[in-house]
């Protein structure tokens, strides 16, 4: 039984058709890599699945509920409780320290401050970030910032982690390290991951991989036969 399921999604931005009939399903605990050329609609697909965009047509089902019919408020709540996000860059609040950023989703959920910070801090050793808790985001290296973003995404114990080019701004060694840590952590937490990347070595961390081309998810095998 898949946890996240998209059927026949379409999405256009004005004249640009970003998605035309994309479908996919994500199993619980699965890491699914989404590959495809630039501009093919990978990010758009991810945003639609995560409830950031509403698709023009088609359905997104999460945990048995239709996502596209949820209100903005409910989708926001889902983002807070059930989803985590790691983007290429820029998703951390620049003026806050690393630990503030990690504690932020907990604080927004109404968790008490001491508990939130305690929980946030507990993630730093797991991601090899010990000692960086008090650094401001601008004072972190790219790899460190990405790991803080991973910690922030996972701190609420989400069911699905959406990662869009999480290593896109990193060199391959650092990217490898971030991926290793991220994969280890999600495996331990049984979190499903939708991993958008065009880097095969990143995609190789996934259990399965699909390709998006021209707004569609293509099944390579089916077309050859």
């Amino acid at each position: 039984m898949s946890i996240l399921y998209a059927n026949d999604l379409t999405k256009s931005f004005g004249a640009t058709v970003a998605l035309q009939g994309a479908s996919l399903s994500l199993e619980p605990g699965e890491i699914l890599a989404v590959m495809g050329p630039s501009g093919s609609g990978k990010s758009t697909l991810l945003y639609c699945l995560a409830g950031i965009f509403t698709p023009d047509d088609g359905t997104v089902t999460f945990g048995g509920r239709r996502m596209d019919s949820l209100s903005d408020r409910e989708r926001t709540r889902l983002r807070r409780t059930a989803f985590g996000f790691v983007f290429q860059f820029g998703q951390l609040v620049p003026e806050l320290t690393a630990v503030d950023n990690v504690a932020l989703p907990l604080l927004l959920s109404g968790k008490r401050r001491t508990a939130a910070y305690e929980q946030a801090r507990s993630w730093f050793p797991r991601l090899g970030l010990t000692g960086l808790e008090g650094r401001r985001t601008g004072e972190l290296s790219g790899g460190q910032a990405q790991r803080v973003a991973v910690a922030r995404a996972l701190v609420t114990g989400p069911e699905v982690l959406f990662a869009d080019e999480p290593t896109g701004a990193l060199d391959s060694l650092t990217g490898e390290m971030v991926m290793d840590l991220m994969v280890d952590t999600v495996r331990a937490e049984h979190t499903s991951v939708l991993l958008v990347t065009h880097d095969a070595r990143v995609a190789a961390h996934a259990d399965r991989q699909i390709t998006v081309r021209d707004g569609q998810v293509i099944d390579a095998g089916a077309r050859v036969r």
């Binding site: 408020r73 926001t76 889902l78 807070r80 998703q91 989703p105 922030r152």
Partner: peptide
Amino acid sequence: EERYAAIRLVGGERSQ
């Protein structure tokens, strides 16, 4: 305002 986008991403509501 830049930070508000980040807060929205981690599930901050408009009212928050």
